[in-house]
């Protein structure tokens, strides 16, 4: 039997390789896939939205997969991102890519303001974030703010329209979000978050400043949503406030993440691509039923398959390998 130091050194060289190779593949495959897809399928806007949903699902992954907090109000960051980036383009003539980054900062700032929501737990947190995002929407869309946000009339970014650039940015955001998830998974920060998810009080007795660590995850997640909203607004070009402050954005991102499997790097990517394709193939004709179905899907997934497709896959793989062990 190898001593523990041996095991450790074997693992550390091994896992250093894995630490780079695994995330590299998980990042490059979807990025190359999206880059090639445009040559096969010409609806660039739809592909842009799909990439945005991959990033959003990964943002939900960081939040729910690593802290156990389900952010139903995730769309608030998305909407703020769309507005902040749109306004810095319109009012200060910022180049769109820089505006997208600022939209991400805007999302993170709103995340910081909403920090007290972490005092809530479970369903109360989910509902609390939902209410907060609805409140942000009401403020942004308010006619009395028309001089600043253009109130209920939304933004017109037609002068900055560049579908190719927007699609490229969406692909870059896919890469950023997957790298962020890989980092969280493989780092001490990720280990800490998993400990908190398992037992917050135990974690605090292990010296973990629980609220602060959760806050970091929340900020990363909010920044991703802010950038996603920025690219959405830019690619859509003309939008009303209700299009970017839309609770179904949260619902879809959560379903995609849960369906693929939270806590993993691949799950949300696969979930978003598969389900968003299905959604567009069938859902366009009668979207209202899809809302209902997706609502039911969330409930079922949380209750019966908290680890999603990938969890199911791991379960099968484990069964097979334990069978093999027994046969040895």
């Amino acid at each position: 039997m190898p001593s523990i130091t041996e095991i450790d050194t074997i693992q550390s060289t091994d896992s250093k390789m894995k630490k780079l190779v695994g995330p590299a593949i998980a990042t490059l495959v979807p990025v190359i896939g999206f880059a090639l897809a445009i040559h096969v399928y010409s609806n660039e806007l739809l592909l842009t939205y799909m990439a945005i949903y991959v990033a959003l699902a990964q943002g939900v992954n960081i939040m729910y997969g690593f802290t156990g907090y389900l952010p139903f109000g995730y769309f608030g960051f998305f909407g703020i991102g769309a507005y902040v980036s749109g306004l810095v383009m319109l009012d200060y003539n910022f180049p769109p890519v820089l505006a997208v980054v600022i939209g991400g900062v805007g999302g993170a700032l709103v995340g910081a303001i909403l920090l007290p929501l972490f005092r809530l737990r479970g369903a109360y947190f989910a509902i609390g974030t939902l209410a907060a995002s609805e409140a942000i929407y009401t403020i942004v869309a308010n006619p009395s703010l028309q001089s600043v946000t253009n109130g209920p009339y939304g933004l017109n970014l037609a002068n900055y329209y560049s579908s190719g650039m927007a699609y490229g940015s969406a692909i870059a955001l896919v890469a950023i979000s997957i790298i962020a998830v890989s980092y969280v998974r493989g780092s001490r920060f990720g280990l800490t978050l998993k400990a908190i998810r398992d037992d917050p009080y135990s974690a605090s007795m292990a010296g973990v400043n629980v609220p602060r660590q959760r806050f970091y995850a929340w900020l990363i997640s909010a920044a991703i949503a802010g950038m996603a909203g920025s690219i959405f607004g830019w690619a859509t070009s003309v939008f009303y406030p209700q299009a970017v402050f839309d609770s179904s954005l949260s619902v879809l991102a959560i379903v995609f993440a849960l369906f693929g499997g939270v806590g993993s790097v691949w799950g949300p990517t696969i979930g978003a691509i598969l389900l968003y394709s299905v959604y567009n193939a069938i859902g366009i004709s009668n979207p209202q039923y899809f809302q209902l179905i997706y609502g039911a899907v969330i409930v079922l997934l949380v209750l019966f398959a908290p680890r999603g497709l990938l969890g199911f896959w791991n379960f099968i793989a484990q069964k097979l390998s334990s069978k093999r062990k027994k046969n040895d």
Binding site: R188, L191, T192, K194, A195, R197, D198, D199, Y201, S202, A203, M205, A206, G207, V208, N209
Partner: peptide
């Protein structure tokens, strides 16, 4: 100041080593 729990409270998704590592990361 530290403690153990009447009903043990390990981080159940982590290995034994990783359980201790969490404390070690956040220790002075």
């Amino acid at each position: 100041i530290n403690r153990t729990f009447q009903i043990p409270k390990p981080f159940k998704d982590l290995s034994v080593y990783e359980n201790v590592k969490v404390s070690s990361i956040h220790s002075r």
